[in-house]
Design a binder for these strands. Structure first.
Lengths: 314, 314
DNA sequence: CTGTTAGCGCTTTCAT
DNA sequence: ATGAAAGCGCTAACAG
């Protein structure tokens, strides 16, 4: 690597003042085309790269957004992050990402680091027990995903629509005896909201509800299956693909391949392994992309708070 | 958010010079405990956070490492990134991560952005067709994962050991008719190296090889299964869990539950769904963590190039 | 031990 | 249209 070139070196090499070089860098229109051409050529030939740190310090904006997610190996989250990355990169931003590991404490620690880094904004993936206070200090420079607040903008999944979609599809096929397996209601979104959606569907459609909730693991769903499986059961709606996997496995063992199973997550593996199965796509990637667009918009025009709901699809 | 505080504000508030504040910030030992205490208190109460941009510009180091991976939704890669994150965060660094989407062009573009950002170093996940030239300009400030170079330090998985481990475990169980399903040899690591490892095992153990390669998808493995399945087949070793999933599914359909299947990836789902199955763990998280340690070490002491091989386990 | 003084590389008035 | 000069917030000599 060659010696670090500064804007001054370029200025000398091009035989102009350093402010002119700066103007070229910032695309200032008041530069004579010929001068600009010359400077650009010198920059190209010398392989000079302006220092972001200096630009950030001077201009105030580092063109960086911080992303705090719970776990990188969560399929839903990493898909959403992909969406974030694509959008912000397009807009000239970069992302520094951190894992909260579902710890409110770590989250706050990360937020502090991000503050020091002078990030332009943050996108935080919520989790049960997530502490919003620190996030709220970011104001319009923050967007949360899968959290319920009025203080900052948010993007959430359509938990109710998700389940409705599954139930409706089943009903359209003429099925009526539809059970449900979810996760504990202590989880506000995946747990409570989806269960409630199921209950509402039952009420609306005159189906007698039959459900169980437990952990978010296939083992849990596997063991819960027998408790919601009656002789007449025709389908089991699950709050996630992970659960669906456990249920489908149990049904296969029991020879109840007649029972339809639905999950949430769009895991292609599910329907590959179990034919009598389908999955609802909550739109993870899209949700990530939307949250990024929202943040970037708010960064330029300090608008009010917006709450988006990501549409689901089969 | 309160008005942006600078080191000067703190100095005034604490009734000291700004360099004293700086000394406190940098943990300079030559500060009288009493003074330090006072400054720290003011910092705490005012909620002042030093600007990383300014520090970076002054000190030269931004305390950031760039990470370029192919896809965030690759289980192997996101586990490795978790390892990276844990280690570098511990060392006071942050990560800006980018997706290459298996494109050499994008990778180089990202590398350029990272250069401008003045990152201290980069960790790049290799892929077939990966262009090393740009990475090499980083010299000792780069570490690559799953790539074969002499120019920069690297961490690779033990592709040979992975397969040997699987075969040995099978042999120990008294099995002899062991087939193999992998991916095309155009993929140097997952394809070629693992296939060769299988062949070598066969030779060493006097097993007559029986194998097929195709795409890295369960569908591919599913269809290839019949071609390596003979009446006497006792086990099928697969180059990855994804493949193993396809094979296990096909065997289940055929009623050949007597055939053992092994995969690579430590996916717990595999053995949950298919009992006659096990998976080798290439140590993704560990490899990520190691690459980060390696990079950080090289950042402080410009040592020579190191090549690490991540140990696998069952 | 602590205050003063230079800059780091860049953007931005302010003159010219 | 362009150069000179003034900092952005911080660290690192350099003097006390």
């Amino acid at each position: 690597m060659t010696q670090k070139l500064t804007i001054l070196d370029i200025a000398k090499l091009a035989g102009v003042g350093k402010s002119t070089v700066s103007r070229v860098l910032t695309n200032d229109p008041k530069v004579k085309p010929a001068t600009r051409e010359k400077v650009e050529q010198v920059i190209r030939e010398s392989g000079y790269v302006p220092s972001k740190s200096a630009q950030a310090m001077r201009g105030g904006s580092a063109k960086v957004v911080g992303v705090i997610l719970s776990r990188l190996d969560s399929p839903s989250e990493n898909k959403a992050v992909s969406g974030i990355l694509d959008v912000i990169y397009q807009a000239g931003y970069d992302a520094v990402i951190m894992e909260s590991q579902f710890s409110a404490e770590k989250t706050n620690e990360h937020l502090e680091v991000l503050t020091r880094r002078n990030v332009d904004g943050v996108i935080v993936f919520g989790f049960s027990g997530c502490d919003m206070s620190a996030i709220e200090t970011f104001g319009h420079r923050a967007v949360v995903i899968a959290v319920d607040t009025d203080q900052v903008s948010s993007v959430d999944y359509d938990h109710k629509g998700l389940i409705e979609l599954a139930v409706n599809k089943l009903v359209e096929q003429g099925l009526e005896a539809i059970s449900y397996i979810g996760v504990d209601e202590s989880d506000r979104t995946t747990g409570l909201m989806r269960l409630n959606a199921y209950k509402e569907c039952c009420e609306r459609l005159g189906i007698s509800p039959c459900f169980q909730t437990g952990q978010l693991s296939y083992e849990s769903a596997y063991h819960l299956t027998d408790k919601v499986l009656l002789a007449e059961t025709q389908a089991i709606v699950c709050a996630s693909d992970t659960l669906a996997m456990g249920v489908a496995k149990r049904l296969q063992e029991l020879g109840r391949t007649d029972v339809q199973v639905s999950g949430v997550g769009a895991t292609s593996l599910l329907s590959f392994l179990f034919p009598n199965t389908f999955s609802i796509d909550p739109g993870y990637y899209q949700a990530g992309a939307e949250s990024a667009r929202l943040l970037i918009r708010q960064l330029s025009e300090p608008a009010g708070i917006t709450h988006l709901v990501q549409q689901a699809s089969v």
